[in-house]
């Protein structure tokens, strides 16, 4: 496989449905990073991931993964990636041993020893039907299979949704270990921003089928801030600096997207740090500008 800078390169990807359009989205996932793909329910995260995996056909745009064009090298790309969904794709009558036998035929680089090591680490039984597993156990099993065939790229769609904090933490630690190899990359779609705060290097926000912003997680969080002020002061804030503002009876909480500039411009006002979750909340309401 040729050298590449970005594990995923998406350019002008478009998909139209009745009532929803994934509209000309573009972003990159640099090699060796975890990209948090954030958006509320129905924003287009799963549609984007399905397009990356060619589960649905795109209307236009290009996708390159691991330095290869998806249209021309789909099979080669897919031999190097792993997809993890929110539901385990294995039948409930199967057990972990049988899954290993099946997947050794599916993946050329299937590593049985690595798989069983993960099973031991996650304390997953080998001969018990997975129908009797809890949700957390099923997700751990799915991740064990995803990490057991030397995949260079993990694409995960809401993989931590519905899991308790302990299991989520365990899984996030596994992802950090996976990234120890600089050739590995992860695209993790989620609306649980706290998970992405912990591990993501990059974030991409999507809303109503459009990319709102994409970039380094730390830079994104540092560039944004919330000005807490009175309504009179709010009127003096330039609308070009505002993402959106939450108006209360006592004042306004205004999300700004260029903290450095606004600190100089509005030096008399209180400017607080923000979080990915707040950024998402304010961006989702950007069209309204003011909300309660």
């Amino acid at each position: 496989m040729a050298e590449y800078k970005n594990a995923i390169e998406i350019n002008g990807l478009t998909k139209k449905y009745d009532g929803f359009t994934l509209d000309n989205i573009s972003f990159n996932v640099p090699k060796g990073t975890i990209m948090g793909f954030i958006g509320q329910n129905g924003a287009g995260k799963t549609t984007t991931i399905k397009l990356l995996l060619n589960l649905i056909k795109k209307d236009s745009g290009t996708v390159n993964m691991l330095g290869l064009d998806l249209d021309k090298n789909e099979s080669e790309i897919k031999s190097q990636i792993s997809a993890v969904f929110d539901e385990i794709p294995f039948h409930e009558v199967l057990n972990a041993n049988q899954i290993s036998v099946i997947l050794s035929d599916v993946f050329e680089n299937w590593d049985k020893q690595t798989y069983f090591n993960y099973l031991d680490r996650f304390a997953l039984p080998r001969k018990k039907n997975i129908g009797s597993f809890s949700k957390g156990m099923k997700m751990k099993l799915q991740i064990a299979t995803a990490l057991s065939h030397n995949a260079k790229l993990l694409i995960m769609d809401e993989a931590t949704t519905g899991l308790d904090p302990v299991v989520r933490n365990e899984i996030l630690d596994i992802f950090m270990e996976y990234l120890q190899d600089e050739n590995n990359s992860i695209l993790l779609s989620s609306h649980i921003t706290s998970d992405l705060e912990k591990i993501a290097d990059m974030v991409t926000f999507i809303d109503k089928g459009k990319i709102l912003l994409t970039g380094g997680k730390d830079e994104t969080v540092e560039n944004h801030a919330v000005i807490k002020c009175k309504k009179d002061d709010y009127k003096n804030i330039d609308t070009a600096d505002i993402v959106s503002a939450r108006i209360t009876d006592f004042g306004a909480e205004v999300m700004i997207h260029d903290r450095e500039k606004c600190e100089k411009k509005y030096s008399g006002l209180t400017i607080d740090n923000t979080t990915l979750e707040e950024i998402m909340l304010y961006y989702v309401r950007r069209e309204k500008k003011e909300w309660k």
Binding site: L53, L55, K78, F85, I88, P89, H91, V106
Partner: peptide, 18 residues
């Protein structure tokens, strides 16, 4: 159909299986 309902068909399309 068992594969389809379990999600296996979707999963198999994300692999290099033709």
């Amino acid at each position: 159909f068992t594969d389809l309902n379990a999600g296996w068909t979707r999963f198999s399309r994300t692999t290099s299986l033709s």
